[in-house]
Design a protein around this nucleic acid. Sequence first.
DNA 1: TGCAGCTCGGGCAAATTTCCCAAGCCGGAT
DNA 2: ATCCGGCTTGGGAAATTTGCCCGAGCTGCA
Lengths: 217, 217
Amino acid sequence: MSEIAATGISVLLVDDHPIVRQGYRRVLESQGDLHVVAEADNAADAYGAFKAHDPDVVVLDISMPGASGLEAIRNIRARSPRARILVFTMHNEAVLVKSAFAAGASGFVTKSSEPSAVVNAIRSVARGERAMSDDIAHVLAEDSLSPTGSVLDQLGEREIEILRQFAGGATTEEIATHLNLSVKTVQNYHYLIKSKTGARTDAQLVRLAATCGLTRI
Amino acid sequence: MSEIAATGISVLLVDDHPIVRQGYRRVLESQGDLHVVAEADNAADAYGAFKAHDPDVVVLDISMPGASGLEAIRNIRARSPRARILVFTMHNEAVLVKSAFAAGASGFVTKSSEPSAVVNAIRSVARGERAMSDDIAHVLAEDSLSPTGSVLDQLGEREIEILRQFAGGATTEEIATHLNLSVKTVQNYHYLIKSKTGARTDAQLVRLAATCGLTRI
DNA sequence: TGCAGCTCGGGCAAATTTCCCAAGCCGGAT
DNA sequence: ATCCGGCTTGGGAAATTTGCCCGAGCTGCA
């Protein structure tokens, strides 16, 4: 079957929902130049499938947000730096997007995009270009993309400690007491952490802390 | 076009993601007996499309959570009690499932299901039977056996929906927009949820939602 | 020496949270 | 039929927090 790849773009589909995979497979294959050569339904299998089929593009459709998808990206890129990975999800949080690119993704498109935008993104990524959908470009633009790596690398020791306690459920006053700081300082850290990580919500902050292993839930 | 219905099952697809709709459409139509006669990308349009095409089955694929989906179900059923609605989502919380059936759904399948299970569910629903995927039956079964009142039992439908979106990282404005409520109302729910659950912090709320399976991290 | 970055906090306007309250609606109990 | 209670929806007003600006002390490093 690998002869096909010579005339088109071979794709590995990663998604945990079987029927979603099948739907995308049909949409992609109707394009003529796109060929789904393999599927995987979890992050762990993704690399095995990648190694076995050496696809031109990996389309990672992570419906659930964070960690396992990012892990899969790192997993593949660490061992095959030439891999092209297009993240395809319904989430559009700046933190997630940045993390995905930092982890080595080549593109990021949301499910709100038109089908044509998605297939064009696959073609762009296959050519080695970076691709993202308009809405993603928008959130990133506002967020003013910084070349920093993992989200936690941007944070100082104190910031991480405060984030940990906050994500653990502590109030601002409690954190101030624990760390012998003024409430004002803790508030400022809270704000600083949010701007550094791109989280716009306390909830996003908690999710971030959880996916980074800062807290367990 | 309605002559087709005589030989098969006509389907109305409701989903907010264009490419997802297109994928499902191809999967369903490849079955031979299933025909997608219309699509809608939001709850508001769903009833209009239903009235215009009178499909045998409505497949409601609400990736974005709930209330608007539940509303759409009630909306359709209230005016066309004969309507057969199959909810098709990635969520598998008992609360949601029960709400959906209470709202008048005929079936509930998750995206984790095999494509064959999904199309069979559509056929079952078209015959007027009730249908649900194995995993849904499982969570409902466990739920009915557990006398332990989950924290979620204290919360109403709206509260749960708002908690879900909040824990997912949405801002108050976003939730208000999604659910067509005033910001003030969402704020009040936010407060109410905290007092009902005893959470004193947004972070505690997120953790609570996560442990209840309302959101994944 | 000097810059850069972390840590710590003040200030102040704008926004949000916290409570309390009211009204409509609906289902169940009386 | 009526009342009670709970859900849903929002207003109001005080209290608190956020967002963003600032300065200052400390450290490490070039």
